[in-house]
Design a protein around this nucleic acid. Structure first.
Lengths: 136, 136
DNA sequence: CTGGATCCCCCCTGATACTG
DNA sequence: CAGTATCAGGGGGGATCCAG
């Protein structure tokens, strides 16, 4: 690594950022989790994810394919058929992602509560006439 | 079950998405990793992160605070002093994030290679010779 | 069925200036 | 030092049409 690191240079923080820049978008993780169950076709995935636009599905798959996380197999049949599948690298990503998922599930309620408490004590008084008042 | 789940309903996929929506932004993880070393002051962090704007630092800290990952302590001294610190919840997030970091570091080279290969075989031949495009 | 191309809106983000 | 307010630009993302 001949690169300049921030002063604190925690191992992995920059790497995490780069990974997050890739899978931190709205759909990538969902796709990876979906493909964890086996190869899927385009429209099949589109139906399953529900909410994703065709454009975003295409772009997301492109990105994942580019990063070597997903493989794309075209069967020149009629009608055309394209299978998307997790590569070994893609599968390996599942582990840390699942770990994050465990954490998320274990703490979702806690986070929700924290948010509610924060909002309650004037964290975001957007809809309130709250005077400029500082909690002491 | 009162809620409608996507067909594949892998445990954690939705939870992961929500967490990612929170920490998947450009700075949150960096801040969390930074605060892992102990409490920090505002400008101190601004200097350390390098590249973050004052606005983004404020917004990121707000979000983390709202989610209960970071605590904010104001010392009514002169000059004013505000310490940001990881809450226990914030610290617990470090574990899965570090796991992701491990993965990232272990596979960054692989990913870079995959990207290069993808681009090489015409994955993104976007040198498109300006199609006669007319803005309305 | 797969997915490229286009239009368009909104939010994220950065830069700057100002307040306590 | 620690923020808030405001403005401007870019890009993410949805809807739609069209092509192979």
């Amino acid at each position: 690594m001949t690169e300049e690191h921030p002063p604190f240079h925690t191992e992995g923080c920059l790497a995490v950022s780069r990974v997050l820049a890739r899978i931190g978008d709205k759909w990538s993780v969902l796709i990876v989790m979906l493909l964890a169950g086996g190869p899927r076709r385009f429209n099949e995935m589109k139906r399953m994810v529900d909410g994703i636009s065709q454009r975003m599905l295409t772009l997301t798959l492109r990105g994942l394919e580019r990063d070597g996380l997903v493989s794309r197999t075209v069967y020149p049949s009629i009608p055309p058929r394209v299978d998307y599948e997790l590569t070994p690298l893609g599968h390996s990503l599942r582990e840390p992602v699942m770990a994050l998922g465990q954490w998320a599930q274990a703490n979702l309620a806690y986070i929700a509560e924290a948010q509610a408490a924060f909002d309650r004590r004037g964290g975001a008084p957007e809809a309130a006439p709250a005077p400029a008042q500082r909690p002491r």
